[in-house]
C-alpha cells in the first residue's frame, strides 16, 4: 500500500484514504462548442498513458476531500511529488528536488 502526501493536509497518509482521478492537466475547454469533433474527442478520450513519469489526479476522498495533482512513476508506482490542483505542471528540476527530499533512499545491497 502506497503512502501518499496530501498537499492540503500536508501529511502522508495510506493509499486507502485516496481515490485515483485520471490524468492531470487536461483542462476543460472554456468554450467546448468552438472545438472540432476531433479536438473534442481528444479532450474526452485521448490520454498519454506513459511508461514512467505520469502527471495524475488523486482525491483525498476519506480525508479532506480535496482533489490534487501528483507525479508518479507508472513502472515503480512511486510518487515523486504531489501538488495542489491548479498549480502548474512542475519542471524536471522541481520534480527531482521533491523526489530527493521525500522519496526513500536507495537501499543498501
Amino acid at each position: 500500500m502506497l503512502l501518499i502526501r496530501c498537499p492540503y493536509c500536508e501529511a502522508e497518509r495510506p493509499e486507502v484514504e485516496f481515490t485515483y482521478a485520471g490524468e492531470a492537466h487536461i483542462a476543460r475547454p472554456a468554450d467546448p462548442s468552438a472545438l472540432s469533433d476531433d479536438e473534442w474527442r481528444d479532450f474526452l478520450f485521448i490520454r498519454t498513458n506513459p511508461r514512467g513519469r505520469h502527471f495524475e489526479r488523486w482525491r483525498h476522498m476519506h480525508g479532506c476531500g480535496r482533489f490534487f495533482n501528483a507525479v508518479r512513476d507508472t513502472v515503480t508506482d512511486k510518487f515523486a511529488m504531489t501538488y495542489k490542483a491548479g498549480e502548474p505542471r512542475p519542471s524536471d528540476e522541481e520534480i527531482a528536488l521533491a523526489g530527493s527530499a521525500t522519496s526513500v533512499g536507495e537501499a543498501r545491497p
Binding site: 526513500v104 533512499g105 536507495e106 537501499a107 543498501r108 545491497p109
Partner: peptide, 10 residues
C-alpha cells in the same frame, strides 16, 4: 543474490 533494492531494506 540480492542486487539493487527498491525499498528501505537490507
Amino acid at each position: 543474490l540480492p542486487g539493487r533494492g527498491k525499498e528501505d531494506c537490507c
